[in-house]
Write a protein that binds this DNA or RNA. Sequence first.
DNA 1: CCCCCATATTGAAGTTCTTCGATCCAAGAC
DNA 2: GTCTTGGATCGAAGAACTTCAATATGGGGG
Lengths: 126, 126
Amino acid sequence: MSKREFVVVGQDGADACCPGLLGAPLGEERAVELAKVFKALGDPVRLRLLSMIASRAGGEVCVCDLTAAFELSQPTISHHLKLLRQAGLIDCERRGTWVYYWLLPEMMNKLAGMLARPADAVEVVS
Amino acid sequence: MSKREFVVVGQDGADACCPGLLGAPLGEERAVELAKVFKALGDPVRLRLLSMIASRAGGEVCVCDLTAAFELSQPTISHHLKLLRQAGLIDCERRGTWVYYWLLPEMMNKLAGMLARPADAVEVVS
DNA sequence: CCCCCATATTGAAGTTCTTCGATCCAAGAC
DNA sequence: GTCTTGGATCGAAGAACTTCAATATGGGGG
């Protein structure tokens, strides 16, 4: 067994996001947090929900439209939306009878930054 | 229920990657494929493994080093490495007694591109 | 040839995830 | 107030995931 050790760089404060996955070994805490978000993306239904929400022109989608787009029960869609919201990927608001969801681009940018190679990661134009 | 429909743009051929999550609603097939990759990233152990592999200077890591870095059994690490490999994120080769793993940057770039906003997505400098 | 070491595979136990039907809550219409 | 409709929550069933001990495989060394 080649005796080399891994120096962990991770956890540089609550929201400091920047070494990325590819720059230095991830600390366990940060890995647990990041994994929650990727896990939220790890389901076809949730990916399609997110994509529908993100690509809608006005920036907002009514739950009724989302539910109608799948052959799944309404509670199931509601559950997936909840997971996406808990992952920090979307948010919602009730307006009268309907509830509208929209994308939170910060989290998407953060993830994209984590995946990009260190050289490319700098470039997240907001 | 507001009667609007979603036009699916998805599946533009095997590996055409480009509308991204945020540009147009994802087709089911593409969602299923993408979800597999994100699911592979949705576990803290696998995230750390990937990060260790990606950040290692020489570009390659011996399994023995990876196994030593966790308090998990050797079969468990082996299983996680297999999932990462099946997701197209890493590859490996046996050289004598040891097996070495390395990152496949194409998949990382593809994912980063999917998450980036359409405007930003163009910029994957190889 | 037989033994040893590094990984992979198998099989099983416990946990978590996905989904549903049933039910509850919020808000508008009457 | 009562009714209706959109959406969230609850509880349960089945599938999938994580982990381990045991075992198999592949190569080098004696």
